[in-house]
Structures are given as C-alpha cells and as structure tokens.
C-alpha cells in the first residue's frame, strides 16, 4: 500500500522524460532512448570509453493544481542514483516558457557501474514544514551503462557453451550435464547454460524451428524441463537473501528477483498478500518448519510457468498419433 501521510501530496503523478543524452559532447542516437521502456542504453558499440553523459530532462507537473493547493516553494528535483556505488546526485529543473520543467543532470561514468536510476521528486513546503516530498514520477528511468539496446527488463540470459572447454572455470565441473542454471554468476540476471557437448545434437534440436514430430516433442518437453529448473533455482535464490523490516517482515527485493517473486508467489502461496506470502516463505526457510512441504508448491508454480502440463499433453498426443499410424 501507499504510505499514508499527515500532509497532502499533489494529486496527479508527474511525468519525467529524458529528451536527449549527450555523451562526452556527442548526442546519443535517439534509438538508444526508449520512452516506452523508460530506459536509456548508454553503451555504444564501436565507440570507446566515455567519461560524462549529460541527460536533458523535461517534466510535466499539474501546475494549476499546485498553484491552487496548500503547497509553496515548490522545487522539481531530478535524482540520479545507483545503489551499488552509493551515488546520489540531484539537479533542480526550472520552469520553462512552455510550462514544462526543464533541466539537465550529469552522469559521471566513474561513479556508476551498471544501471543508474533517475527519478523526479517534487518538493515543497506544506503546513509550515519545508522540504517535504509532495510528489514523484511513477516509474523511474533506467540508465544502462552496459547495454546498447534500451530494454527495461533484461531477459534471462541463455548461453550455449561447450562445458568441457568453457572459459568459465566452474562450468567445466558440469561437463556431463546437458544444462545448468546459474543464478548468482551474474548479479544482474540469471544465466541458463546449455552444454553443446553434453548430449550430442540436443542444442541443435532446441534451436530448430521445424523438423519431425518427434523432434518437436523432444524440443517442447526439454525446454519445459529446463525452464522448470530455471524457475525453481531463481525462486530459491530470490528468497535466500531477503532484507527485513524490524519485525522480520522480508522486503521485496529489487532486480530480477522482484518479477520472479511477483510471478511465482501467488501460485506458491495462494490467497496471501505478497508481503505476507514472502514472510511465510522466509519463516519456513529460516526455521526449516514446513520448508520441505513448500517445495511441492514451488515446483507447481515453476511447472506452471514452464507450461509442463501443456507441453506434455501435446507430447502424449503426438506419440499416440504416431503409434496409431504405424502399420
């Protein structure tokens, strides 16, 4: 729920837009700025390292309502931050002649690692208290330092590799596996490794789009199985390191863990508020009580995401058809 405050906030949400970005004085192609995804991809392939990105910003506030309301000394503040580098920098926007608020904020390359977050805070004096947060932008913008395509949610990475000769040392230990799921290898996103030398020909079948009925059955059931492994592993990782409120209520994590939990929790513990479900899971996990029973539910939730039942039904029907058509 939204926190209940002792003073009024401005009624509408405010809109923040990154109008353009210049990187070391050169404008970033607009195709790397996505307004729908609210994401900017700062990495430019084929271009060397850079030092400074200047983000040109525009915000739209409900000015009339603010003027009519109890707020005064209103400041429109852009906030650029990244948790992993503990950086927070701010810039004030100024009201332009066209009624929008405009300004710029600098992103120093050396102060950011992967993904900076840009949000907008509207601040003002209310009931005699100055510096109150009275409004903010709905969803923040992401500034991706490592990507050249502006995508908000990074997809789960799928890497095809020969485990025997993998550059990742640890993979070699799994040379006989057909696939492994790595959820902590890259803190940003889980990776599914497919072993090109584990089961000969399997990766080719997985990558195919046509082929015989048998091939399709193999492809469908295998991808389902891999996906189920991945969802189970992701779920466990996501609940394994939860920050907690004072009373032990776990806090919904950020990053890829958040969508994973939000997608799976309703199936793992149906009928519970997300925070309540998360608390239950965390308690089972840390105390051990009920943890084993919960595995069934986790498996069910992962199976649902992986469309196990659907894919297997299709497979059974196919096999059945094949058998009947045997002479």
């Amino acid at each position: 729920m939204r926190p209940f405050l002792s003073y009024p906030r401005i009624p509408d949400t405010v809109e923040l837009e990154i109008v353009s970005v210049s990187v070391d004085g050169r404008d970033l192609p607009y195709s790397q700025i996505s307004r729908t995804e609210k994401t900017v991809a700062l990495h430019q392939t084929g271009r060397g390292d850079w030092d400074l990105a200047t983000l040109h910003l525009k915000a739209v506030l409900p000015d009339q309502e603010i003027a009519d309301g109890p707020w005064s000394d209103v400041v429109c503040l852009a906030v650029l931050s990244e948790n992993s580098t503990n950086v927070r920098s701010t810039a004030r926007l100024a009201k332009g002649r066209d009624g929008t608020w405009q300004g710029k904020i600098e992103l120093v390359r050396g102060r950011h690692l992967r993904r900076a977050v840009l949000s907008l805070a509207v601040v003002g004096e209310v009931n005699g208290v100055p510096g109150r947060a009275i409004g903010k932008s709905e969803a923040p913008w992401y500034l991706d330092l490592k990507e050249s395509t502006p995508r908000r949610q990074r997809e789960i990475k799928i890497v095809e590799a020969d485990f025997r000769e993998a550059s990742e040392e640890w993979l070699r230990g799994f040379k006989d596996s057909a696939w492994v799921v790595a959820t902590v290898e890259d803190p940003e996103i889980p990776i599914v490794y497919l072993n090109t030398s584990g089961v000969e020909g399997l990766v080719e079948v997985l990558n195919g789009t046509s082929g015989s009925a048998a091939e399709k059955v193999l492809r469908d059931t295998t991808t389902s199985q891999i996906a189920q492994d991945a969802w189970i592993a992701m779920f466990h990782t996501a609940v394994s390191n939860l920050d907690q409120d004072d009373d032990g209520t776990p806090i919904m994590p950020t990053g890829w863990q958040e969508p994973v939990l939000k997608m799976m929790l309703p199936d793992v513990l149906p009928g519970r508020q997300l925070t309540d479900a998360l608390r239950e899971i965390n308690e089972c996990r840390t105390s051990g009580a009920g943890w084993a029973e919960l595995q069934t539910n986790i498996q069910f939730a992962a199976g649902k995401r992986s469309q196990i039942a659907k894919k297997l039904t299709g497979a059974v029907r196919t096999v059945d058809r094949e058998e009947r058509s045997e002479p």
């Binding site: 926190p3 405050l5 503040l77 927070r88 701010t90 805070a121 601040v123 510096g131 109150r132």
Partner: peptide, 20 residues
C-alpha cells in the same frame, strides 16, 4: 521518507576529475 534533505541542505558538487 517525507523530507528531501537534498533540498533542505543542498550539497556542493563533487569534482570527479580531482579524484582521477
């Protein structure tokens, strides 16, 4: 959660070049 210290007490900018 309700007070924005950046506005109440604005900081001076950080000179990243000096660090370099």
């Amino acid at each position: 959660s309700t007070l924005v210290f950046d506005v109440i007490a604005p900081d001076s900018p950080v000179d990243h070049d000096a660090r370099l």
